[in-house]
Design a protein around this nucleic acid. Structure first.
Length: 194
DNA sequence: GACCAGATTGTCT
DNA sequence: GACAATCTGGTCA
């Protein structure tokens, strides 16, 4: 499959807007074993210093420094002692903004994803931030990777009209819960949670 | 279906 | 030393 990679310019917009516009795009990872990809169906915005739930809230650290770089790069972090999550960096340099990709709908290389997850049910393959990282074979070596370049990139697929986007509150955090920074595609069966 | 506990380690206080 | 932007598998219904 050949997709039209999103240009650098795509990421040059307010973080919350970027989070919404990433819905319906494809996240592609090409590996020696083959390519696998998924349609982004669920995202969350994290606004750095303005947002108590963001990793970057208390300033730049060794762990979150990728988010303080320019937009459109990969911020991958380790959590709960055993999982990785994948973010797209956002906003101008220095602000520490990011968009967490919470779920994708398997598209290409489904067999590869099934092998990586040791699971056949497509609805379960990548319906969560830690799951999609495993399903697509993303690893820490891609920390800070430029998402307009192979082997890991985001490409055009389809546009989601505004009325198909559900805006709600974020998941799995203890502060800033009331902020409506989570977006997902209405009636999609591959989101992490209703 | 809903709710709950356990896994397991890097990172920050 | 506490906790984490989570997932899975268990119990009970």
């Amino acid at each position: 499959m050949d997709y039209k990679t999103l240009s650098k310019n795509f990421y040059n917009k307010p973080t919350v807007e970027l989070a919404q516009s990433l819905l319906g795009k494809v996240l592609v990872h090409e590996t020696p074993l083959g390519a696998s990809s998924g349609i982004i169906v669920e995202t969350e915005a994290y606004l750095g210093g303005e947002d108590p739930a963001a990793h970057a809230y208390r300033g730049m650290t060794e762990r979150n420094k990728a988010m303080f770089g320019s937009a459109g790069h990969a911020y991958i972090y380790f959590t709960y002692g055993m999982y990785f999550c994948f973010n797209v960096t956002a906003g101008p340099e220095g602000v520490g903004h990011g968009v967490l990709i919470r779920a994708v709908e398997p598209l290409d290389g489904v067999d590869l994803m099934q092998k990586r997850r040791e699971l056949l049910d497509e609805k379960m393959l990548a319906s969560g931030p830690a799951k999609l990282v495993i399903a697509l074979g993303i690893n820490k070596e891609l920390y800070g990777h430029d998402l307009t370049e192979k082997p890991l990139y985001i490409a055009e697929f389809k546009d989601i009209p505004d009325e198909q986007v559900v805006k709600t509150t974020r998941i799995g955090i203890s502060e800033g819960k009331e902020l409506p920074y989570r977006f997902y595609i209405k009636d999609n069966k591959f989101i992490s949670k209703k």
